[in-house]
């Protein structure tokens, strides 16, 4: 049994509880929720946008967890916690730094630490954690907190 979260409003669909008001009795697996189902709280994200946040060790989810490409881009394997930014920041600001990419959940803009953003005044290699907190998405104006770690493929 797993939980899936709306990346915009934080609504969580818990397979154990279902959502009886919406017509999903307790125990309804996410796979049985219609493909075109929109978040019942905000309606601006669809089923395919939802993020897997808590997979329990049942047989079927255990097989899908290690393979790195289930449909709703999950949190990186390194950080299985639900909330986004904090734990990654102090990962490795040292020499052999692994650069990461960050995704604006509002518009899909990607900040790539390796490339920086010249236009915004961030040299290549500027870590996301080094960007000022009041910085806004250059495309849509969403705040820095609206960014989540972006994992390719």
């Amino acid at each position: 049994m797993a939980k899936y979260q709306c990346p915009d409003c934080g609504y969580t669909y818990d397979e154990v509880l279902g959502h009886p008001h919406e017509g999903f009795p307790p125990g309804t697996p996410w796979s049985q929720v219609p493909e075109d189902y929109a978040c019942p709280d905000c309606a601006v994200r669809d089923k395919e946008d939802f993020v897997l946040i808590g997979a329990a060790p049942t047989g079927e989810t255990a097989t899908s967890a290690p393979t790195p490409a289930p449909a709703p881009a999950p949190e990186p394997v390194a950080a299985p916690q639900p909330p986004q930014p904090a734990p990654v920041a102090q990962a490795a600001p040292a020499a052999g730094t692994v650069y990461r990419k960050w995704l604006c959940i509002t518009c899909g803009h990607i900040y790539d630490e390796a490339l920086g953003d010249e236009h915004e005044g961030f040299a290549p290699g500027t870590l996301f954690s080094q960007i000022p907190d009041d910085w806004c998405c250059p495309d849509c104006g969403a705040t820095k907190e609206d960014y989540v770690l972006y994992e390719e493929k």
Partner: peptide, 18 residues
């Protein structure tokens, strides 16, 4: 409001170039 419909009125933001 439309980008984030569940935000309450007191915390709604302005953005650049709207």
């Amino acid at each position: 409001h439309h980008a984030h419909p569940t935000r309450s009125y007191q915390s709604l933001r302005d953005f650049k170039d709207l």
